[in-house]
Write a protein that binds this DNA or RNA. Structure first.
Lengths: 153, 153
DNA sequence: TTATTTGGTTTCTTAATGCAACCATTCTGA
DNA sequence: TCAGAATGGTTGCATTAAGAAACCAAATAA
């Protein structure tokens, strides 16, 4: 009785969640974005159990989100680095961070700022091709033929 | 030996994942964005077990992401609707959807288009105050005093 | 040579997931 | 009116995942 698979639901969101939809994966990615690369550093900064971290890193590597690099120097043998695919999760992680700060308050001592100006980032928003901001009420869900999506049960 | 709590890690991302970081929650929210409101419709469209759905809906309601509304008409007794906080997850869900489509291909028969023009949406991007697009390499992580964030172990 | 660091694996206990059965209330059809 | 179905659950059980701690091999450092 294995966990439900999300990659065959015909849904992009489900497919994404199949790769990074568990409690730890996105946190590992976020930590990697902070510069963490080594196993022990992930372990200590996240407070994650070693076997779970092992499992998550393997799965992130399998899914092409991270790569394991052999660096044969003074006891530090491997590094886990984000791939382009992993770095591309920056949008997701940032949107999640901003959402949390908007609705739960800024519980984070850390801030994310523009590397050059040092100013806070702009809120991440969904826009149409013309650059107009859209909420979920401003969009339609359609099938390949442009017909309204039937939300079948 | 309870599950690790993510809301006291002093990290906004962790705090967000504590609310919607499990396998099902974001899918329920996504489905609600498609217009699903009733228990059975969530159940059938997602293929989720009833007890798990029950648990997730309760938790989403507890966290203020959804509300349970009593609609006393012909056997449909309750509706689960997104709150403003829930609708605000649109950015996150859309970023996740686009990420999946970029890297795993468009496995979704459903498309998300501008309600007025019918055109696909623009890619969600992180920008600075001036509107310049930023990658994770273009940002800094700093503490309250603007000092570089020390990635302590 | 003896620790120590690194990156794991193993074992064990607890929690979460999935499935099926059951259940009370409300509506529908005959 | 009365049987049946739908709705929104709850309960019980089997399987899987998570968390903590112990253990371990290879390489490094003291």
């Amino acid at each position: 009785m294995t966990r439900k698979r999300f990659d065959d639901m015909g849904c992009s969101v489900a497919c994404a969640l199949n790769e990074v939809g568990d409690w730890w994966s996105l946190l590992v990615v976020k930590q990697a974005m902070l510069g963490t690369r080594r196993f022990v550093d992930f372990q200590h900064s996240l407070g994650i159990a070693k076997n779970i971290l092992c499992n998550r890193l393997s799965r992130l590597v399998d899914n092409g989100v991270m790569v394991r690099v052999d660096v044969g120097e003074h006891g530090k043998r491997y590094e886990y680095r984000l791939t382009d695919k992993g770095r591309d999760l920056f949008t997701v992680v940032t949107a999640l961070r901003q959402w949390s700060e908007r609705w739960n308050g800024e519980k984070d001592a850390m801030q994310l700022v523009d590397g050059q100006s040092g100013e806070p980032l702009a809120p991440v928003v969904v826009k149409n091709q013309q650059g107009k901001a859209l909420t979920v009420r401003d969009v339609r869900f359609v099938d390949k033929d442009g017909q309204p999506w039937e939300n079948v049960g």
